[in-house]
Design a protein around this nucleic acid. Structure first.
Lengths: 233, 233
DNA sequence: GCAAAAGTGTTTGGATTACACCCATGC
DNA sequence: GCATGGGTGTAATCCAAACACTTTTGC
């Protein structure tokens, strides 16, 4: 006689949410997009944007929805980070949260506070104040995951303008890896990464303008078919 | 006037579970411990051991409990994998699951089916049949995470006997990285990893017995304090 | 002695590092 | 011309791959 182990309605009393850490790059720094909450709990606290998951919604869908509601951006690749389920983490009940992160080009959209936030701001990852809930912890461990991704998958280019200089790429690399590197050596290091050089230069700089590059995703895909090739930054 | 966004009891209608993928190593293969379910849903299907999380229980606690109930092992480090929340994944309601994994020494315990399983078995990672729920998917993505951990943190030693031969270490490495490697070169590759050599040899082999080694975790900890040192397998 | 695996040394080519130097632009 | 960063070449060094060879055990 088969038995159902789950027959206690007491188990179906929890909620879950998705929190989205949105990373961007400007002023040589990696930043996260934070909102100032305009609701309880943690009213007026800075926080990672997040929302409860709808009953019929899958997790990646929820993450995309939150990103869209916040930035108007669609079609951005989302990456799952970790889940956090401390029973005390939410004052209103048992809510576990799944953290997702997105990498976006800061210039691609205009930030504006939505109805459920009274302010919104990019904050450099090393200048983040005390946040609502366990959000400091969530950001910290998600940033660790970001760094691993950046080193092993071609996602840096999601944070850079479509056309970027090699120096921008180097600055992003140096910030994420917390190192400094010789310019010539950096260029040798990335020579396995397929970049398209354009006949176009940086504008409005008071020194020799740098050449602009873009990531050659077509070439990357064909390279990836070779099992000996592995992206490494 | 502060408003609570969460005031709909309809949100607190989901449950969550923790699934534990327990990895071990024997016969030169990485294996996972699976149970044959003795309950609905998916009665008589092979599955990853898992359970609902108790209302007052944190996620890592739940993972440790499940490991203990299944193997009797305590004090094993658990690692969080990914979460899975497809609304259709559980036939009895909305259940999202957080996958955890543990690496254990297969010889350290005797497996025996518990009350909620009719059978239990180690299965090589590339010989796993169709499982209950979305468990094939869960195992696959957790195995990918395992491979990354193995390469970057000294967790291989959790899967090997306390004293092991260099060839065992190499076989585990080769299985996980799906490569073959020259013996001499492998030994050069691992010379940064702190190992203690013992005056003890393999027994009952019909060839020259190999020396036994153990991981020198004391030395590893002091090495880790040097920011230039990074474990790499 | 033979089979089988343990264990070590040498050579070579490619990648990483340190460092030096030249180039283009604005003011 | 000079300040500022863009861009490149060279030599020394380290590291990984290929391969050959010696050693120790059981039978």
């Amino acid at each position: 006689m088969p038995m159902y182990r789950i027959n206690f309605s007491e188990f179906f009393t929890s909620a879950f949410s998705v929190d989205c850490i949105i990373f961007g790059f400007s002023d040589s720094k990696i930043k996260a997009l934070l909102i100032k909450r305009a609701m309880e709990p943690f009213n007026h606290f800075w926080a990672v944007p997040g929302d409860l998951v709808y009953p019929k919604e899958d997790l990646p869908e929820a993450a995309e929805r939150i990103l869209y509601e916040l930035t108007g951006l669609k079609g951005i690749q989302m990456h799952q980070s970790q889940s956090f389920g401390n029973p005390e983490r939410h004052p209103q009940g048992r809510v576990i949260t799944v953290a997702y992160f997105a990498l976006i080009k800061i210039d691609d959209f205009k930030i504006e506070a939505s109805s459920w936030a009274e302010d919104i701001k990019w904050m450099a990852i090393d200048e983040i104040p005390a946040l609502a809930f366990d959000h400091n912890h969530i950001i910290k461990s998600t940033y660790e995951m970001l760094k691993i991704k950046l080193a092993n998958e071609p996602v840096v280019f999601d944070m850079l303008p479509k056309r970027f200089t090699l120096n921008q790429l180097q600055q992003l690399y140096e910030y994420a890896s917390a190192t400094e590197m010789d310019k010539a050596n950096f260029r040798k290091k990335i020579k396995n990464i397929p970049l398209k050089a354009h006949n176009e230069k940086q504008q409005n700089v008071k020194h020799r303008p740098a050449k602009l590059f873009s990531f050659d995703s077509k070439k990357y895909i064909s390279l990836s078919k070779d099992l000996n090739y592995r992206f490494k930054l």
